[in-house]
Amino acid sequence: MLFLMAAGLTLIFGVMGLINLAHGSLFMIGAFACATVAAATGSFWLGLVASLAAAAAAGALVEILVIRRLYERDHLDQVLATFALILIFSEGTRWVFGSFPLYLDIPQLLSGAVHLPGGAQYPVYRLAVIGVGIAVAIGLYLLIGKTRLGMRIRAGESDREMIGALGIDIGTLYTLVFALGAALAGLAGAMVGALQSVQVGMGEPVLILAFVVIVIGGIGSIKGALIGSVLVGLTETLGRFLLPHLFGLFMPPSDAATVGAALASMLIYIVMALILAFRPRGLFAASA
């Protein structure tokens, strides 16, 4: 799910050269749309469709109204404007839905746990999320690498003016890319919303992680986003699990738990710093 988020972000950042801090808000919109529609219709699947549609629509709207004016500006202006969007989206959502978390449950089909070979149990829903992540990765690879639209996106990435001169409507193309990135964020939001709580501000912690992922993976690279998200996910989870045990070898258990937990939350940033020290452009820097 981190991959979905990071893929959308890296697509926008790489192709359009735009820092979009409001990506977390699109994630939140996806989750709220899914929770609302699922509550109204009783179907998680309709909610999922709604989350894609709502996030894509919000993304397109934001692109046309705000972002379009920012391409020529520097990154500081983009950061300021999209940060403002975060605040607007958060307060707007609070205004419409209130401050209390919404209820969104996973569909019957995907609830429960399965036995994996080796005796471990694993929740079906998490398997499904991994499945969706892989499907989106393949889909994006095919879209970017094999289709005409993908060719245009890649062309727009390397030379914005040239592709405009070739008679392609660059404005529409950018709106489309932005909406695609937004839809991925919305999909991630809807799927995570069923695991966590659907509430205002749920997007920001994920946004920070997503930025770490794209920096590690190399800005603008979908492959980098995939590898980066797996790396960050593994580092965080294993760190949280193993570090307290490691410190437990030479410390009293309660101190070990505290130190281990503190260090585990720093671990992904330490990993990021190390990777940047050796590969300043990330693991899979997009050729620019």
Binding site: P101, A113, P123, A194, L195
Partner: peptide
């Protein structure tokens, strides 16, 4: 909210205990 939902899906199934904060009226509907 996040923990209780994920815990229910995980199939661990041990009884959950907690102070009221973990299961108060503000989070129960979610």
């Amino acid at each position: 909210i996040a923990f209780t939902k994920q815990y229910a899906q995980s199939g661990v199934g041990l009884p959950l205990l907690g102070p009221a904060f973990s299961f108060s009226q503000d989070v129960l509907p979610a």
